[in-house]
């Protein structure tokens, strides 16, 4: 079997198809940033230790720096650029904007994508490390600040905007619940 170190792949990103040749070494993160000019996904550590590159893969949050682009073929990728509908921001984006859930802005796209993943995971009843009673009968825990903090801990913010970020996720969760936008499982 002949081996090859590159492939032509088709990526599904934000509802669009992109066909491009990639070096197998290319991560999804570098494909987005260097090849597709989707630079909203940030490179903070490039080794899964900061969360700045968080995107949604088939609707679930993942770090793009440890995801090889070639292995992402066939999966639906949603990046920060794919969240707003025209000029209308996603409720999580809107909450970050209004409550100042950022400072330098570099970890922000990752925080926002992660928060969207958190809200979905919580709506599905998934427990976290700080959930007191994880038995399925107990149902989903209340989305307290403590729950949000634990679930968001894979996203470092060196500026230290954590207080405002948690406030923003809290508000978005409340807004999402009233608008019943995907939050109700």
């Amino acid at each position: 079997m002949a081996s090859s170190t590159s492939s032509v792949i088709t990526l599904h990103i934000n509802g669009e198809k992109f066909t491009l040749p990639v070096d197998h070494r290319t991560t999804l993160l570098d494909a987005l940033r260097e090849r597709l000019t989707l630079t909203g996904t940030k490179k903070g550590c490039d080794q899964g230790q900061c969360g700045a590159c968080t995107v949604l893969l088939d609707g679930r949050r993942a770090v793009a720096c440890l995801q090889l682009a070639v292995a992402a073929e066939g999966r639906e990728v949603t990046t920060i650029e794919g969240l707003a509908e025209g000029d209308r921001l996603h409720p999580v984006q809107q909450a970050f904007l209004e409550l100042d859930g950022y400072q330098c802005g570099y970890c922000t796209p990752g925080q926002i994508c992660s928060a969207i993943g958190v809200l979905r995971e919580h709506a599905e009843g998934r427990p976290s490390a700080v959930t007191d009673d994880i038995r399925p009968e107990a149902g989903p825990p209340p989305l307290t600040a403590e729950e949000i903090r634990e679930r968001m801990s894979g996203n470092l913010c060196r500026c230290g905007a954590y207080v405002a970020i948690v406030e923003a996720v809290t508000r978005a969760a409340a807004d999402g619940a009233t608008e019943s936008e995907e939050a109700v499982a």
Partner: peptide, 12 residues
């Protein structure tokens, strides 16, 4: 499992 890594990494 919930105490390990982060939500993103556990999804992968």
């Amino acid at each position: 499992v919930l105490a390990g890594a982060s939500g993103q990494l556990r999804n992968m």
